[in-house]
Design a protein around this nucleic acid. Structure first.
Length: 284
DNA sequence: CCTTAATCCTGGAAGC
DNA sequence: TGCTTCCAGGATTAAG
């Protein structure tokens, strides 16, 4: 069967897993050196020395997340925004040890305890944005994002969907509507909610919107619990892989039987994304 | 208002 | 076996 091997496609659960495992390794430690392997991986930096912008000399005080975006905050207010793209990995190399692989490592932060934080991203859809303050980061990068999907409420979701004539799946993928859902969890949430992905957002009943908000939260929470789902190449900051216990209900399973009813799952394309749904469980 | 296509990039899988 | 081709993904931009 095609495409059974899943690549690392960081969505909200994967980013949250990295955030949670990176925090204990970085917060309270200072950056003694920053090594930039590819200058163009730094997408944005304020005027001045580039290394300083990336946290040089600062001590990490917090790691934030909004949707799929993550940011390291330093004691003097500097904020380094990390976006994993679709193949990004951020992991810590313990003092005196060597990383499993060093190809495609674009940025390294050397910490004062001898450890190092490596940002590896073979496909380079990710990147790093540096800001002088958290406010600047929020204004320039996060303001355009919708509410965080992990805690999305029915009212906020209904507001985001509005009277849009787009397919509901297209809306779920739109980070301005809802921040954190990608192709995998969009399909999974729609299945759990029993809603066909091509249903127009404006045609959703209040009950369906309620079910959808609940489903989005549920599948994302389950993903976080599974430490970043089953993605084969995904590793957290401690280089541990996601658990294998959760299986996708529909994502990537077109042509296979629905785990609920046995009907053959249908594949289609919505918003340039492969889409899978059950024609029986997800009636229009 | 909406959709489609192209762009960025690499590695894994499939086809011949 | 080795080559070529296709495809996946998120975000952005341009065009229809």
């Amino acid at each position: 069967m095609r495409h059974n091997g899943r690549r690392a496609m960081p969505e909200l659960p994967e980013v949250e897993t990295v955030r949670r495992t990176l925090g204990p390794r970085w917060i309270g430690r200072s950056v003694v050196a920053v090594k930039i392997g590819r200058a163009d991986f730094v997408r944005r930096a304020p005027a001045g020395p580039r290394l300083a912008a990336l946290g040089m000399g600062g001590t990490a005080t917090d790691i934030l997340r909004h949707g799929k975006q993550m940011a390291v905050v330093f004691d003097d207010g500097r904020a380094v925004h990390l976006h994993l793209g679709m193949s990004g990995q951020v992991f810590v190399v313990a003092p005196g040890t060597a990383p499993a692989r060093t190809d495609h490592v674009h940025i390294r932060w050397m910490l004062n305890d001898g450890s190092a934080v490596l940002f590896r991203d073979p496909r380079r859809f990710g990147g790093v944005w540096a800001f002088a303050t958290v406010e600047e980061l929020q204004r320039e990068r996060w303001e355009a994002l919708g509410p965080d999907a992990l805690t999305i409420g029915t009212a906020r979701l209904r507001q985001g969907l509005g009277h849009s004539g787009r397919a509901v799946k297209a809306c779920l993928l739109d980070q301005a509507v809802l921040a954190g859902v990608g192709n995998i969890y969009a399909d999974e949430a729609l299945f759990v909610a029993g809603i066909a992905p091509h249903t127009l957002a404006r045609d959703l009943s209040p009950e369906q919107t309620t079910r959808l908000a609940r489903a989005v939260r549920a599948v994302l929470r389950a993903g976080v619990r599974a430490r970043g789902s089953t993605l084969r190449d995904f590793v957290d900051a401690d280089s541990r892989e996601g658990s294998q216990q959760s299986r996708f209900r529909v994502y990537g399973r077109a042509g296979q039987p629905c785990r609920e009813c046995g009907a053959t799952l249908l594949g289609s394309v919505i918003s340039q994304r492969t889409t899978t749904h059950c024609p029986a469980c997800q009636a229009v």
